[in-house]
Design a protein around this nucleic acid. Structure first.
Length: 224
DNA sequence: CACCAGGCAAGTA
DNA sequence: TACTTGCATGGT
């Protein structure tokens, strides 16, 4: 009679990180030049392939709109046309302007001061903006403000539940706690870990056609 | 052709 | 509270 002993969560999370890190090495996220560009990218990439986001950001660059003050002066309709390739473009244009308006009215466009708040108040303030939810807020806190929060996305949920490390029905905060309760609180670790999960998700853990045979996590069973 | 991608808010019961 | 639906382009 054979027995399968479930690994402790902290050991599993450490093993996943080690496997991914030795497979991919440092990924140098976030792919954006300034804190403002990172914040814009975080909104544009909501439920959208990053390739499409890059096209939209190129358009914004060409229109010289990658600054808070300039974007804030842009009418919603023309901003929408510029970010069209990112999809959901009317909704996302409004969301970008909601963020710009909050930063102007509450922070007088001083991004540095805004991002230097404690991560908890920063998160509260971001979540008050209509169009910024938990993942977008946490992406901004980790990658623009460089403060230690763990970012959870659909790949994080899919990979951990398929490997039986968390239950399928875990929500955002439960998944986030799984990481923060079992890892040292470190900006560079959280940065790299989320980037690695997204990368391995794109490469091997697509929703309907996973490629578990060649996935670097195949030694952790079960999967698919 | 169908399906999906680094979510979120609003509507329904 | 717990589901469902709209938003939309571009790649496989």
């Amino acid at each position: 009679m054979e027995m399968l002993i479930k690994m402790h969560t902290s050991d599993a999370l450490q093993q996943i990180f080690d496997l991914l890190h030795s497979h991919y090495g440092p990924l140098d996220w976030w792919p954006g030049d300034s804190p403002f560009e990172i914040m814009v990218g975080a909104i544009l990439t909501q439920n959208t392939n990053w390739r499409n986001v890059e096209k939209a950001i190129d358009n914004l660059q060409a229109a010289d709109l990658l600054s808070l003050e300039k974007m804030n002066q842009q009418p919603s309709e023309s901003l929408a046309e510029i970010i069209r390739p990112a999809g959901y473009f009317t909704v996302k244009a409004a969301r970008l302007l909601n963020l710009c308006r909050m930063l102007k009215e509450r922070w007088h466009c001083d991004l540095e001061n805004f991002l230097q708040q404690s991560k908890d108040t920063l998160r509260e303030e971001l979540l008050m903006v209509k169009g910024i939810g938990p993942e977008t807020a946490d992406s901004i806190i980790l990658y623009a403000a460089e403060q230690p929060v763990f970012v959870v996305d659909t790949y994080t949920h899919r990979i951990l539940s398929r490997h039986d490390i968390i239950p399928e029905e875990y929500d955002y905060s439960e998944i986030q706690e799984t990481f923060t309760d079992n890892l040292e609180e470190s900006v560079s670790l959280f940065n790299e870990y989320h980037a690695l999960l997204v990368q391995v998700g794109k490469d091997f853990c697509k929703k309907s056609k996973p490629d578990c045979e060649s996935c670097p996590l195949r030694v952790l069973l079960p999967a698919t």
